[in-house]
Amino acid sequence: MLFSSYFDSHIDYVELGNDTRNSEFLLLGFSEEPELQPFLFGLFLSMYLVTILGNLLIILAVNSDSHLHTSMYFFLTNLSFVDICVTSTTVPKMLVNIHTQRKIITYESCIMQMYFFILFVGLDNFLLTVMAYDRFVAICHPLHYTVIMNPRLCGLLILVSWIMNILHSLLQTLVVLQLSFCTHLYIPHFFCELNQMIQLACSDTFLNNLAIYLAAVLLGGAPLAGILYSYSKIVSSIRGISSALGKYKAFSTCTSHLSVVSLFYCTSLGVYLSSAATQSSLSSATASVMYTVVTPMLNPFIYSLRNRDIKEALNLFFRGKP
């Protein structure tokens, strides 16, 4: 669909050398069809509310049950909090745009949205890596688990994750701030995504692309390699268990985490593969929904449905028993 007529009625051209900070962007979203707007609004509002409620229940269940005050559930509550933040960074603005039919977002708001989105998605990645390490210690070194995964180390791992991702997000944002935009400032997406912002620039984007590639290798590839290494050791340890029941119990402690890891990385890779394979902005935006909205929504269901301790904690929480 052509958006030029809609765009021309809202945004003027920005000439090279003008103050980009006074500019506005247009988030094109998914569709301009009026009859689809109520459906899209209801769909994403429902998914957002389910995401918030599901992840809050996980946090409340873990905090209310002293039996769940372990490193594994400490990391899970952090993951639930970050999932809430990931969705809250993008979906509320999209809902406002759908409801008001004004797709404008200011330059400052766009930069802030991009900063927090990079931060929280990066934290998701790091937390999944830390949780894989936790499962590695629990299965490969069970006798030393409580000693190794002590509260001090758990807190340090979370702190390091926050610091590294704050610095990474700040770096990406500062590099984008150096760009000039001199074409129609419409973003074929439902939020200010980093790659889309760079494609709009009319100044040199070499540093931006370099920062993205380095981050992909260091902050994307390294955590994935850590997860794969942890599970290779876990599989080796499980294969060494003699009884079938013992193997099942050991593997069952990893199934929820494996499901979340698979969902996160498959949807994330799907976004970039779809962007590389097709020029359709609608396909890219639709694929992005998977890891920005769907994945945070499904995570609580994965952990609650496949984890007896969480189900028991939720049951006690609703019954009002300590």
Score class of each variant (00 low, 15 high):
residue 269 L to V: 09
residue 26 L to C: 07
residue 26 L to S: 04
residue 203 S to I: 04
residue 123 L to K: 03
residue 277 A to Y: 12
residue 109 S to G: 12
residue 144 H to W: 13
residue 71 S to P: 01
residue 66 S to K: 15
residue 120 F to E: 00
residue 184 H to L: 13
residue 65 D to E: 14
residue 7 F to H: 13
residue 32 E to R: 14
residue 116 F to Y: 11
residue 242 S to T: 15
residue 257 H to F: 09
residue 22 N to C: 09
residue 214 L to F: 15
residue 173 T to R: 03
residue 307 N to A: 03
residue 224 L to K: 02
residue 265 Y to E: 08
residue 252 S to M: 12
residue 74 F to P: 01
residue 234 I to L: 05
residue 258 L to Y: 07
residue 146 T to E: 15
residue 214 L to G: 11
residue 220 G to F: 02
residue 221 G to C: 07
residue 116 F to Q: 05
residue 255 T to E: 10
residue 68 L to Y: 03
residue 149 M to Y: 02
residue 198 I to R: 01
residue 89 T to Q: 03
residue 36 L to Q: 11
residue 77 T to P: 05
residue 10 H to M: 13
residue 70 T to M: 06
residue 98 I to K: 01
residue 179 L to A: 06
residue 303 Y to S: 00
residue 100 T to D: 08
residue 254 C to T: 12
residue 198 I to P: 00
residue 313 A to C: 09
residue 158 I to Y: 08
residue 96 V to I: 15
residue 196 Q to T: 09
residue 315 N to A: 14
residue 274 S to E: 11
residue 71 S to T: 12
residue 229 Y to C: 12
residue 246 G to K: 07
residue 51 T to I: 08
residue 181 F to W: 00
residue 3 F to V: 15
residue 280 S to A: 09
residue 187 I to S: 01
residue 260 V to S: 10
residue 52 I to G: 02
residue 205 T to Q: 04
residue 161 S to H: 04
residue 241 I to N: 04
residue 178 Q to S: 15
residue 303 Y to V: 05
residue 58 I to H: 00
residue 102 R to V: 13
residue 11 I to N: 09
residue 9 S to N: 15
residue 214 L to M: 14
residue 68 L to N: 04
residue 115 Y to C: 03
residue 8 D to Q: 15
residue 18 N to P: 03
residue 111 I to F: 07
residue 154 C to M: 14
residue 260 V to A: 13
residue 155 G to F: 03
residue 299 N to G: 08
residue 149 M to S: 06
residue 41 F to I: 05
residue 299 N to W: 06
residue 10 H to A: 13
residue 48 Y to N: 01
residue 101 Q to Y: 13
residue 2 L to A: 12
residue 226 G to D: 07
residue 296 P to S: 02
residue 98 I to G: 00
residue 7 F to Y: 15
residue 188 P to V: 01
residue 217 V to D: 08
residue 103 K to H: 12
residue 257 H to E: 06
residue 107 Y to C: 04
residue 18 N to K: 14
residue 96 V to A: 10
residue 100 T to E: 08
residue 318 F to R: 06
residue 46 S to H: 05
residue 263 L to G: 05
residue 79 L to A: 02
residue 12 D to W: 11
residue 127 L to P: 00
residue 253 T to M: 11
residue 322 P to W: 12
residue 159 L to Y: 11
residue 288 S to G: 14
residue 103 K to E: 10
residue 234 I to F: 02
residue 154 C to K: 06
residue 189 H to P: 00
residue 109 S to W: 10
residue 113 Q to H: 08
residue 12 D to R: 15
residue 39 F to R: 09
residue 216 A to L: 14
residue 26 L to H: 04
residue 267 T to C: 09
residue 262 S to D: 13
residue 291 Y to W: 12
residue 275 S to M: 15
residue 29 G to Y: 00
residue 219 L to Y: 09
residue 81 F to R: 08
residue 55 N to G: 06
residue 162 W to Y: 15
residue 63 N to H: 11
residue 95 L to K: 01
residue 264 F to Y: 13
residue 296 P to D: 03
residue 27 L to K: 05
residue 54 G to T: 04
residue 223 P to Y: 06
residue 275 S to E: 13
residue 285 A to P: 00
residue 121 V to L: 09
residue 251 F to P: 03
residue 264 F to K: 00
residue 140 C to T: 10
residue 161 S to F: 06
residue 321 K to G: 10
residue 153 L to H: 01
residue 21 R to G: 02
residue 286 T to V: 14
residue 273 L to S: 12
residue 102 R to H: 14
